[in-house]
Design a binder for these strands. Structure first.
Lengths: 202, 202
DNA sequence: TTTGTTGGTCAACGCTTGTTGGCAACAGTA
DNA sequence: TACTGTTGCCAACAAGCGTTGACCAACAAA
């Protein structure tokens, strides 16, 4: 197989544009939409290709196989505020800032819903979520919480509440959870997240 | 098709035992295990039948089709304490009691994990979860919270935290969440659930 | 004993899936 | 011009899926 084709992360930061870049992007966008709506198994390569307006075999050529496609589609950056910025604002606003950011992020980007759906049934998806917790939420907790040694625990607690609300609102669609305005959700969850991050061990 | 065979809930409370009851139970147990481990799509009728030690066609005869099998396997009773019992104990212990109960329940019964997995990708699974929220968690909130009018909202908030922790611990298996002893999880989550149930609107 | 019902297996159906290889059109280069 | 690599479509493959119907063995009722 052509090794230089199937990579999704170029070895060099700068890669010369290819004529097929538009197609690659279309495939990725379609994949995200289908994974978000259907989960890993029911999002078929054929349906993704159809939505992207190309032949299924192109997906294979550009992403190797279905797993590779998912890995590329689930490249996620939560864009969390830098830990330093968080330390500069009033200590009791961190929870509110984070919850608000998470909800925004979820509403604007279907990839997060996709990952949540896939993580529930697919081991690669679950692994990717563990990685995001470790690399993106962990550092925040480490900077904000009193004792950096138990930052991972606090990060997991925060994740449990945030993911739980995302599950209720965007995946399971509990009617009341969907109907609640974003500000109200923030009002309820912010103190929880704040406590998980900064309260002394119970 | 034989109508009297495919029902899973007998019209009359008492139904005479059939010779095939053992097989039916074996199928149901195998189905719960496979759905919990693999989710809806990857849990195949063939694999379930194999685990139950019978032929795939038996599954069809007794449960109609795959959806019917799942519906039967996802018949869930959270066994929550009666709302009245909750009102009798100190008001600030309700959160702790509930969280502890949920964690026990989850650990002892893989069906809950199965439903969580399936609910994330399957619309019937999600519908079942909405039903459980409404019929089993809702009433508790209605009895415990200050204004019964917003009981549904409070129930959804409780569910978001409890389901989020179940997701982290039993499905995504965040290492720290798995490693935390049950008592510690209760210590952290109890005040959250307590506040969602009884605190005045934020 | 005969007859009807129930519990169970077997082999196959039609369909969808991920995946592959061949082939044509095009672009860039020499 | 001829040559080489890229982009794309088409047709097909093998495997696995849910589901079906024919068929047999054991039991129960007559």
């Amino acid at each position: 197989m052509q090794d230089s084709e199937t990579r999704s992360e170029p070895a060099t930061p700068e890669t010369k544009p290819r004529r097929s870049d538009a197609t690659r992007a279309a495939i990725l966008a379609a994949a995200r939409e289908r994974f978000a709506a259907d989960g890993y198994e029911r999002a078929t390569i054929r349906s993704i290709a159809k939505e992207a307006g190309i032949d299924p075999s192109m997906v294979m050529r550009y992403y190797g196989n279905k797993e590779g496609l998912f890995a590329a589609a689930a490249e996620i950056d939560l864009n969390l505020p830098a830990p330093m910025d968080l330390r500069m604002q009033p200590a009791d606003h961190v929870g509110r800032t984070l919850v608000s950011h998470f909800l925004d992020r979820w509403e604007q980007d279907e990839v997060l819903t996709a990952l949540l759906r896939v993580g529930a049934t697919n081991s690669a998806g679950a692994e990717r979520m563990r990685q995001i917790l470790k690399e993106q939420i962990g550092p925040i907790a480490a900077q904000v919480c009193p004792d950096p040694a138990d930052a991972p625990r606090r990060a997991a607690l925060v994740a449990s509440q945030v993911l739980g609300m995302a599950l209720a609102r965007f995946v399971l669609r509990f009617p009341v959870a969907v109907a609640m305005p974003k500000e109200e959700v923030v009002d309820w969850l912010a103190p929880t997240v704040q406590r998980y991050l900064t309260a002394p061990e119970p």
